[in-house]
Structure formats: C-alpha cells, structure tokens
C-alpha cells in the first residue's frame, strides 16, 4: 500500500510536518517496493482557503491509501474519508520514525477531524 507523509523535506530523514493542508510536500511511500515518490503541495502553502481540500486531492491523485500527519481538519477529513484514505496522526520527528510507528501498528486511525477548521 501507499502511505502519504506530510513533510518539508525530500527523504525519509526529513521532518514530519504537523500540518496536512499546508505541508510543502508529501512523501508517498510504497510498502511493497519500499520506494517513495514526492508530491509537491506548495501551491497550498499560501492558499487563502481550501488548502486541506486541495491537499487531499493531491494525495488521492498520488494513489495513497493512508495519510500520516500531525493533524487533520474537518474538510480534509471529509475529503479523505470520501476517497477511502485512512488518516493517522503522529508526533514523530521524522518521516522514517513515523513510518516505523505505522509499520509497528503504533498509530491509531482518526475517526474524525482532530482539529477545527480555519473557516468555521
């Protein structure tokens, strides 16, 4: 399966970005091939609104079945749920640490947004 991690960097040692919608990019890791690709999300960093919605479209288009990030707001959660993408939160320092947490089954799946939206 493919897992999308929010990050500001370019490899597994890069920091896990606590923000989902306004992360600079997503590292999409394929557990079968153990390879990853990077999905750019910078157009959302300065978006006036709707960053979470667009970011969810980006990870869905990348074929991810799971997202690991620090937080997930209501609109992004609704998008990801619709796309059948599971959302996990982690406070890991790096993508690699979050990945090992995920593979160890140490992350719990969100059943609702864990932060409020910025627009009510």
């Amino acid at each position: 399966m493919k897992i999308a991690f929010s990050t500001s960097g370019n490899d597994l040692n890069a920091p896990l970005d606590m923000r989902f919608g306004r992360a600079a990019k997503f590292l999409v890791y394929d557990t079968e091939t153990q390879a990853f690709t990077l999905v750019d999300n910078t157009q959302n960093m300065s978006a006036a609104q709707g960053a979470g919605i667009q970011a969810a479209q980006n990870v869905a288009a990348a074929g991810a079945q799971a997202v690991v990030s620090g937080h997930c707001g209501p609109k992004a959660f609704r998008m990801l749920s619709t796309a059948n993408i599971k959302v996990y939160t982690s406070n890991a320092a790096t993508v690699a640490e979050a990945l090992s947490q995920f593979q160890a089954g140490a992350l719990t799946e969100l059943t609702a947004a864990n932060v409020d939206g910025h627009w009510a």
């Binding site: 709707g50 869905a60 619709t82 796309a83």
Partner: peptide
C-alpha cells in the same frame, strides 16, 4: 477559485 467544490472518484 475558492475550493468550494472538489471531485474525488467522480463524486
């Protein structure tokens, strides 16, 4: 322009 509509899996 305001992301008030999104399409996922043709929905």
């Amino acid at each position: 322009a305001f992301k008030a509509l999104a399409v996922l899996d043709k929905r």
